[in-house]
Design a protein around this nucleic acid. Structure first.
Lengths: 346, 346
DNA sequence: CTGTTAGCGCTTTCAA
DNA sequence: TTGAAAGCGCTAACAG
């Protein structure tokens, strides 16, 4: 194996000068730099990264913990994150965690094994953070969940306002003349996002002074096609008078629609379905999904930028709220003649 | 930071003995082992992997190159692979490569940067392998593409027989009374899998002595919803008499169905669509996709096992063919009264 | 600007 | 069965 010593010998400089060139230091004469770079190139020499990081005992890895592999929004975000990190001289290290597992524990484990210099959490349960995030000392960012209330000095966050989004959804559906609204979400014990959106929904109902019986009109499941499929069937049994279902993810919406179809209901003629996330397949589904879109590019971009910033200067954490958007599709119909009342949000 | 020295001091043994225990060597007295393990556990000590691998200058990483992030079959396979590798003492390192990029070049880069001990390629273009795989010296496995004809001593493969699958699809559709069959696949220059399946289709047509005009009845695009959507529209313009479309992925099938719906066609009443891969959403789509399933669990399981084997003993490469399966859905209708002729394949 | 040198944490002879 | 000591390839004081 080629080492820095060989390059030193061949180029006629010492190992330290070679090391300096390799690390792009400025205290090297242009000539030394040129010569050394030439020999490095000639041998396609690549420094041994284990040796390099032995001393600093850290890597250039950014760990990306993805919670729930069925979450297609996260898939899109991961892709963008990876693209963006590739442009820097950091490396991405993607770790998938089950929807029901403890992502903070996994992160702690990853810290020991891979020594990342930063962590991105795609999804997360605040309780796990409260319990275990104290052990993590490196800059981190929570993506798609709000982290401001957790109050960790090294935890930033980028997310939409889920409460507002929940309220917006209910508002929109009520605006379309719906009164009997079913809701499909995650298990509140596991999904804070579900809790937040649900809270928003309740606000929406209160605002319009419509009664909502959570016991009857809400069903929880995993964020998967299958989970939502079954949850929809349960919901249909107990809440027979619903005219619309608000599903807290597009994957759930699709599972729900399939369940409705299998029960002989037309969507949206008999029952409407509203989704959440704005993933690609929604636009190609039949019917096209009416949904609340989270812009995955914006989420990815902002989270990477914030993490890089936090890894550089030692800032106070940043908690950023990004906007959500309504994507009108075909899966929700208006029960009023004048179609939907105009709601504009930005 | 806790080091092996600290453990040595605390346990009352030397660093070498601690090292031996850490590496599960047998030349240690049971007592020493017990005591040292106790202190290790007490401090949750994890050896520094940089230092550990400095000598051997390799990691415990297995690089997984995923070609085409829109490929949902690959997403499922990746998940399984990760689960499976987690059980060993290797680590997964997932790298996404664009459908149109050179995965072998990326692998070479990854080898330098991350020093993996094995590589899994999810998808790949044989031409890129011919050009560049010679540079890669570590055991690798090509998943979902056949690698036997490439003839590299360190490249195994696990895949279905794409030619047979293509033929099977056409056979099946002809069995259902279809004669005018449109085909949607990838760009032949980039996707060997597309070429193979297409070849199989041609065999199918020949077998039944049906003429097939590729210029008119085939359209290529990226393996995305959008790509297939547009390709379907192009196909519909030039091949107006098709009764069915065979899409070479479920994602493409969904893009195609949406395009057909947007052109006022009913699926399968006016035009049928057959997919490929058997991804989750197909089962929840409307109509449910009739598709050729590749069992992602089997692919994942076999590829990991084969790679681990290759990394252990220095075997001849293994090229394994796994079976595919027909999943009857609702998106293909029979044009014959007796429905589909029975075809059984295993 | 450049070279010398002392480690980084661990594994691995070699000797006891 | 154990310990002492010599590196693995690189970085970073420090001295020139």
């Amino acid at each position: 194996m080629l080492t820095i010593k060989d390059i030193a010998r061949e180029s006629g400089y010492s190992v330290s000068t070679v090391s300096r060139v390799l690390n792009d230091r400025k205290d090297v004469s242009p000539e030394a730099k040129r010569k050394i770079e030439k020999t490095v190139a000639a041998h396609q020499f690549i420094p041994n990264s284990n040796a390099k990081h032995l001393k600093q005992s850290s890597s250039r890895n950014i760990a990306v913990l993805v919670k729930g592999s069925s979450n297609l929004l996260f898939s899109s975000i991961v892709e963008e994150i990876q693209k963006r990190i590739e442009k820097t001289n950091f490396k991405t290290c993607i770790i998938y965690v089950d929807e029901e597992d403890n992502e903070v524990k996994e992160a702690v484990k990853a810290c020991r094994e891979r020594k990342p210099v930063g962590i991105m959490f795609l999804g997360g349960n605040p309780e796990f953070f409260q319990e275990g995030f104290g052990q993590i000392k490196i800059p981190s960012v929570l993506v798609s969940n709000r982290g401001d209330e957790l109050g960790f000095a090294n935890l930033s966050s980028v997310a939409i306002d889920d409460v507002a989004a929940g309220e917006f959804a209910v508002d929109y559906l009520i605006g379309g003349g719906h009164r009997k609204i079913g809701i499909l979400g995650g298990d509140f014990a596991l999904s804070d996002v579900s809790r937040q959106r649900y809270k928003g929904c309740i606000h929406g109902f209160q605002k319009h002074q419509i009664k909502f019986d959570g016991k009857l009109y809400f069903e929880g499941s995993r964020f998967t096609y299958q989970g939502a499929y079954q949850a929809m069937k349960r919901l249909l049994k107990k809440a027979k008078d619903i005219t619309v279902v608000f599903a807290m993810s597009d994957v759930m919406a699709i599972g729900a629609i399939r369940a409705l179809l299998d029960c002989g209901k037309q969507v949206p003629e008999d029952i409407s379905v509203m989704g959440f996330d704005g993933i690609a397949v929604g636009e190609y589904y039949n019917p096209k999904l009416t949904t609340i879109q989270q812009k995955y590019k914006v989420l990815a971009e902002r989270s990477v930028d914030i993490l890089l910033q936090a890894m550089g200067e030692s800032h106070a954490p940043i908690h950023e709220i990004v906007p959500f958007h309504l994507i009108p599709g075909e899966s929700v119909r208006s029960l009023r003649q004048d179609t939907f009342s105009k709601i504009i949000i930005e």
